[in-house]
């Protein structure tokens, strides 16, 4: 029944998907945290930049961002992100675009988490003589992160599915392979089901595990 899978590197394609998701998740977590930090900073320029960034980036379709990273950054500005083979260049460009896009959502999730931390926590920290970055790093963000594990897990699931758009610039991940197979094979519904199942296998545990983590790390007040 699953003969049509023969000759295709299904696991390899999903492995690329996993790599895209993991690298982009790490990158967007870091960049999104920095953006959230800027958004609550006392420096107006930083606040303005973060607000503008989030509002611009989250309102542009991801496809446009990914295609721009290939056509604009790579082909026009010849930025190759340190890679020399085209596969690597495209992979890195896709990660860059996914990070740039997802960070806007991470930032907004985190900012809502920061709003759950009572203002007294920051006051007590400042009263001890901690600097702004120390207050953010040691007191506010740890509590904010614990409050937004669930929203962040939604962002992570969306990110995993968004990696399929990397196929638009030729990254051979799962959905790229799916298009190949649809052109060459007859079992259209089965192919769709196989790939749908593959993504559920990736994202379902993510949601379940992070849901459990969310309860585990919740800050009791």
């Amino acid at each position: 029944m699953f003969d049509f899978l023969e000759g295709y590197d299904l696991l390899g394609a999903f492995w690329v998907t996993v790599q895209l998701a993991v690298y982009s998740a790490l990158g967007s977590l870091i960049w999104g945290t920095l953006l959230a930090g800027m958004k609550v900073s006392p420096v107006p320029l930083m606040r303005g930049f973060a607000t503008a960034y989030v509002n611009v980036v989250r309102n542009i379709p991801l496809t446009v961002i990914i295609v721009f990273s290939s056509l604009g950054l790579n082909q026009t500005l010849t930025i190759s992100l340190g890679a020399d083979v085209i596969e690597d260049i495209n992979f890195r460009l896709a990660v860059l675009a996914l990070v740039a896009y997802t960070a806007a959502f991470v930032c907004e999730a985190l900012r809502s988490g920061i709003n759950t931390v009572p203002v007294g926590q920051a006051e007590a920290a400042r009263a001890l003589g901690l600097s702004f970055t120390q207050v953010l790093r040691l007191i506010i963000l740890p509590q904010a992160f614990r409050a937004v594990v669930n929203p962040l897990s939604n962002v992570l699931i969306a990110l995993t599915k968004n990696t399929t758009i990397a196929s638009a610039i030729g990254v051979v991940e799962a959905s790229y392979l799916m298009k190949d197979m649809i052109e060459a094979e007859a079992q259209l519904i089965l192919i769709a089901l196989v790939f749908a199942f593959g993504f559920v296998v990736l994202t379902l545990p993510t949601g379940l595990i992070l849901g459990w983590v969310s309860k585990k790390v919740a800050v009791k007040r």
Binding site: G120, A124, L128, G129, L130, I139, K220
Partner: peptide, 24 residues
């Protein structure tokens, strides 16, 4: 606001109505 203020605050203890212990 700044480093100088932080240094001074370290020398001035504060106890709040709502305790404000670091919850985590």
């Amino acid at each position: 606001e700044g480093r100088e203020l932080a240094r001074l605050r370290a020398d001035v203890g504060m106890v709040f109505q709502s305790f404000n212990l670091f919850a985590h």
